[in-house]
């Protein structure tokens, strides 16, 4: 039995597997399939200062080895979260992390400040990389100045662990990672979805309501591993890797590339119990390879 404990800045996780935002609801939706407390962390769905209706249907289309979505951050707002959702999830004994999004610096900061006040939320994941909302979201995440300014604004009001989720839709993800590190981020998570498009050739129209959406699933895994590998060489803060992880072996690639933890997203739709299976599989892989601890392999790529 290998030691699967890992640390992301201020938080300690019993194992390195987290459920990715937007794919696991508030965790409760999956309670019939997994013991939520066996998951290292659960990142609940994107929360914004004000309620958002999201984009029109259709919001999803299947692709080869993946899917596109353009949900557009549908959520009931941070006040609803604090009043109605938080009491339901605060006693789940794992790291319950809230993904925070916004369209202005003030929105981001105000939303983060409200969540700062919730005792049992040890961290937020700041989403500066959603490709599916106009003004904001990804606009901050695609320039070093934008990324720096939003992280700086949130850092001033948020004193717990601040993880910043990065977009792969950029020229140099390493530059963005350095900028958010300089602005005070405790960790980075990557990658958010890759922007894509599917066309209905009979109708000669895009399938999705806003034409484009974010690509996820195994189709993006190799891009994600490359990004983690590049960012690991650029920053000294911990990295949470995600993008197309379906199996423990997929996760091991991310650890070798430099991730201290991983998130599982789209795979939850295929197997609602995949999170705990991957955690078990990581343990088995480490045992088979004579590793006593997960930390033995983080960033341990042969030169």
């Amino acid at each position: 039995m290998a030691d699967l404990t890992t640390k992301i800045a201020g938080i300690t996780m019993k194992n390195p597997v987290m459920a990715a935002s937007g794919t696991f609801g508030y965790g409760l939706e999956f309670a019939d399939f997994v013991n939520l407390e066996e998951i290292g962390g659960i990142i609940v769905k994107g929360t914004t200062l004000h309620p958002r209706e999201g984009n029109d249907y259709p919001r999803m289309v299947e692709t080869a080895s993946g899917m596109l979505n353009c949900v557009g951050l549908q959520n009931k707002g941070v006040a609803y979260f604090c009043e109605h959702i938080y009491p339901e999830i605060k006693d789940i004994r794992t790291n319950m992390i809230v993904n925070v999004s916004g369209s202005t610096l003030e929105d981001y900061a105000e939303c983060a400040a409200r969540i700062n006040a919730l005792e049992n939320i040890p961290a937020i994941e700041l989403n500066i990389s959603c490709p599916n909302v106009k003004q904001g979201g990804m606009a901050f995440g695609v320039t070093t100045d934008g990324a720096y300014s939003v992280v700086k604004a949130v850092r001033e009001v948020y004193d717990k662990t601040l993880i910043v989720k990065l977009s792969p839709n950029v020229t140099s993800i390493s530059d963005i990672a350095r900028a958010v590190q300089d602005a005070g981020a405790d960790a980075v998570s990557l990658i958010n979805t890759l922007m894509g498009m599917v066309i209905d050739i009979e109708k000669r129209k895009p399938v999705l309501s806003i034409a484009t959406g974010g690509l996820s699933g195994p189709a993006v895994k190799s891009v994600a591993v490359r990004c983690v590998w590049q960012v690991a060489k650029a920053v000294h803060i911990p990295i949470v890797g995600l993008g197309g992880i379906m199996t423990a072996e997929d996760a091991i690639e991310f650890f070798l590339a430099g991730a201290s933890a991983i998130e599982i997203g789209t795979a939850n739709f295929i197997d609602p119990a995949v999170t705990v299976k991957v955690a078990q599989g990581i343990n088995d892989w480490l045992d088979r390879h004579g590793c006593t601890s997960l930390t033995d392999i983080i960033g341990q790529l042969e030169a």
């Binding site: 249907y57 919001r59 609602p272």
Partner: peptide, 17 residues
């Protein structure tokens, strides 16, 4: 029968107004 992914109310893809 809107197109759906998770089936569990988590991904918010199959929404109806």
């Amino acid at each position: 029968e809107n197109m759906m992914a998770c089936g569990l109310g988590a991904c918010l893809c199959c929404v109806e107004k």
